[in-house]
Amino acid sequence: MSTQTHIQANKTLDCQGLACPMPIVRTRKAMDELEPGQVIEVQATDKGSLADLKGWAQHTGHHYLGTVHNGELMRHFIRKSSPQELKAEQMHPLTVTGQQLEQKLAANVGLTVLDVREPAEYAFNHISGALSIPLNELELRIGELASDEEIHVVCRTGYRSDLACQLLAGKGFKQVINVEAGMNGWTGSTEQA
């Protein structure tokens, strides 16, 4: 990813020049002020901050998205987890597994894949050709989609995409299909912004 890439975050935390453990201490505090699902950008210069933030995110259940290196500066992106994501039951009846979608895409390049994750998540890793509309913007940007088309909706785990499918079905979309297990279960090729 280019060092100039713009990645959207809900909050930016400046930890430049701070040594271990301060980047983690500050991030932990800043996280309390975020809503679940929001993304924080942590700017740090301490080399150990990368491994430690990854470890901390894994321990706490937050979602480490990736790091953009810009010389000494590292821009770490972390998404605050929401407790519902992993346990929630998915409601939308039409689903496809990652492998099935991979096969469909191989057979038909024109298929629509809609990625409803946050822009920062999309930036680090998404299915080639996927369209990015975050869940919270979907209602507003629904005009970008054709209601008679087959649309495969993907997020990280299948939870947000399930909500998106329900929203689209409620608006008269006939062929929306949830991608089970989301990007977590995706083994096909991906690209970065």
């Binding site: 453990p21 983690i24 201490v25 932990r28 430690d52 470890g55 901390w56 321990h59 706490t60």
Partner: peptide, 8 residues
Amino acid sequence: IPYFELMD
């Protein structure tokens, strides 16, 4: 035990 697991 990594420090980031002991902060909370």
